[in-house]
Each structure stands twice: as C-alpha cells, then as structure tokens.
C-alpha cells in the first residue's frame, strides 16, 4: 500500500501536529529516511496539484495538514465564528524583542522599546505567546521571558532560528513583500529533522 495513502488517512484523522517519531510508531516497519522521503514527496505533490485544497505544513513540533491560502476566503465564510484576532503593532514589537533577545527581563524590553510593557507582557502571557522561563541572577531576581511553541505555531515558524538575523531584517522584509504568494510554501521538507522545538 502506498505510504502517501496511509499518511493522508493519518493526517485526516488527527487534530494535532504529527511528529516523525509518532508517525514511526503508528507505521511499523518504516524507517525515518523513507518516511521523510514520503512526506516530502507527498507535500510536493499536494503543492503541485492545483486541484488539491490541502497542503502539508511543518510547524513547531511536527507536520500538519492545512487548507490552501488561496481558499481562505471560502473557509473564512464557512467558519465565521472562528475569526482569529491579530496582534497590535505594540504587541508585535514587544514579541520581536523577546524573540530576538530571549530570555529577557521586562526591564530589558523596556530599555529597548522605551515604553512601559507591563500590560503588553500580560497580554502576551495570556495568549500564550510567551512564558516565564525563570529568574535572572541579578538584584531583584526579575522574571525572564521566552517565546513559546504556540508562538512558533502562530507565526508559522519551525524554530526561532528561522527568523532572519537581526542585521538582515531589511533585506528579509523586502523579500517578503516581493513574494506575492504568501503562506504555505515556506517550509522545505529537508528540515524535517529539526522539527522538534526543544524547550
């Protein structure tokens, strides 16, 4: 039986990202190499076949079957109740400071942003985009903050290393704007082995 067929059934039947390890458990007799190849092959065929409405995404922690961005208009209409909230500019700036400088204390964030970030931290914690990862060994022992797996998921990143280097941001931004097609095609199957975001 085709491995792709098995994979399609598994991804249809689940609601959480499947890791390579998990897939190996449920498909006995497969080795990691052939499974990776099959995933990569299947992903490619999904992308190339215009008649398909699904794509294989690689997210923090594994693989996930998702809809194609071109069809979002229709799915939006279907699932109106699930409209996702977007983050404000201030929240995004705070998040980017944390993502690039983590682990970081509140005072350090404020030094960069120049404004009080109390309520922003609160919001980001509530939305589980950041978490407290310990205390800094300085007077006062302030909390240290880090981004979460959910953060990676929210922005479609496999890991923080996928963010462009801070010095190359301008270039990355220009590229991102030039790239019209948007989401979904960003992940390369080759990176399957670094899927696990170790925390």
């Amino acid at each position: 039986m085709s491995l792709a067929s098995i994979l399609e059934s598994l991804f249809f039947a689940t609601d959480e990202p499947l890791t390579l390890e998990r897939l190996l458990e449920v498909i006995p007799g497969e080795n990691a190499e052939s499974l990776k190849a099959a995933l990569s092959d299947w992903r490619q065929r999904l992308i190339e076949d215009e008649s398909r409405g699904l794509q294989l995404l690689e997210v923090a922690g594994g693989f996930l079957l998702a809809t194609r961005p071109q069809n979002s208009e229709f799915v939006d209409r279907l699932l109106e109740r699930r409209k996702k909230r977007t983050l404000s500019q201030a929240a995004l700036e705070t998040l980017s400071v944390i993502a690039y400088r983590e682990p970081i204390t509140r005072a350090e964030i404020e030094a960069i942003r120049g404004v009080n970030v109390d309520s922003m931290i609160h919001t980001l914690l509530q939305r589980r985009l950041i978490k407290i990862s310990g205390r800094k060994e300085v007077p006062g022992h302030p909390f240290l903050y880090r981004t979460t797996k959910h953060f990676l998921h929210h922005f479609g990143l496999r890991s923080l290393t996928e963010l462009p280097k801070i010095d190359e941001l301008s270039q990355a931004l220009a590229d991102a704007e030039g790239r019209g097609d948007g989401a979904g095609t960003e992940a390369t199957p080759a990176a399957a082995d670094e899927a696990g975001h170790s925390e």
């Binding site: 998702a66 996702k84 993502a99 922005f155 989401a183």
Partner: peptide, 27 residues
Amino acid sequence: ERFREAADLLRKAEADRRLLYWRDTPP
C-alpha cells in the same frame, strides 16, 4: 528600528498564517 522591522516581518507572517486553517477540534 530593527525591532520595528522585525515586528513588520512578524505581522506579515501572521497575516499569511491567517489564511490557513487546520483541525483544532477533534474530528
């Protein structure tokens, strides 16, 4: 300024992400 650019990048990533749907409830 750099972090403002980073925020722009994240905004773009978020917007891209919003176009996608996946299962988030048990089938």
